[in-house]
Amino acid sequence: MMDFMAQRPVGQEFVRHVEDGCPYRADDVMKPEQAVSTGTTLVVAEFDGGVVMCADTRTSTGQYCANRASRKISKVHDRIFVCRSGSAADTQALTSFVLHYLGQHAVELGKQPTVNTAANLFKIMAYNNKDHLLAGLIVAGYDDKKGGQIYSIPLGGTRVRVPYAADGSGSGYIKGFMDANYRPGMSKAECLEFVQKATALAISRDGSSGGMVRSLVITKDKVEEAVIEGNKLPVDL
C-alpha cells in the first residue's frame, strides 16, 4: 500500500484527467476538480517609512481566465497585508485562518500585532501543511516596532525577511530588473513607481499574469490603494 503511494506523488492526479480549457466536462467523480490558481506576479518593496505591495489581477483555471480583476493582496490586519500566489483556494483558506488567529491575538494583546507575528503564523500554517498546500506568500506591513517589513514565505514554508520580493509565475522575468533598480531608502513615490513598473514588465512577458496592476502603499498613518488599468500600464508594449 505504502509502496505505490510513494511512487505516485499526490500532485500528479490533480491535472491529468481534465481536458484542457474545459474543466467541468471530465465525467469522472473519483477525481478532484481542476484547481483554480493564481498564475501571478507579485512585487513588494520597502521604502523609507513603509512598504509598497503590487499584484496583477489575473486568476486562471488552466488556459481560461477565471477572474480578470481579482484581488491577490488580502488584508490580515489594519496594517498587515498578504500577497497570495499558488492555489486560490489554499491561499484564501490560509489567509482566513491567519486572519482569525491574528485577530484573537490582537484582542489578547490589546494592541496592534506585529508583521513579524503575522508572518510567523503564515509560516506555521504553510509549513505544517506543506504536503497539502500550494501557496507562495509575501506578508508585508507596518508596525511600530520595526517599521515597514516584508517577509517572503515560499512553497516549503520557510520565512525570510527581505527588503524587496517578487513571487508568482511572472517573478522570473523581473528579478534582474529589481536587483538592478532597487535602492534602500527610496521615497514613497519612487518606490511605488518602481514596483508598478516591475509588475507591468512581468505582465507583458508572462502569459499567466495580466489584467490590471493593483498596488497598496502601507505607512504608519494610512493604507492607500491604487489601480492602473491594463491599457495604461507603464511599459511600451
Binding site: 467541468y24 478532484p32 476538480e33 484547481a35 486568476t59 483555471t61 486560490a88 483556494a89
Partner: peptide
C-alpha cells in the same frame, strides 16, 4: 463565484460551466 476547491471571487458579472 465559487470553485470546487473552495476559492471564491466577488464579481459584478460572471459565468461558469463548459
Amino acid at each position: 463565484q465559487i470553485y470546487p476547491h473552495g476559492s471564491t471571487d466577488k464579481l459584478p458579472f460572471t459565468s461558469m460551466g463548459s
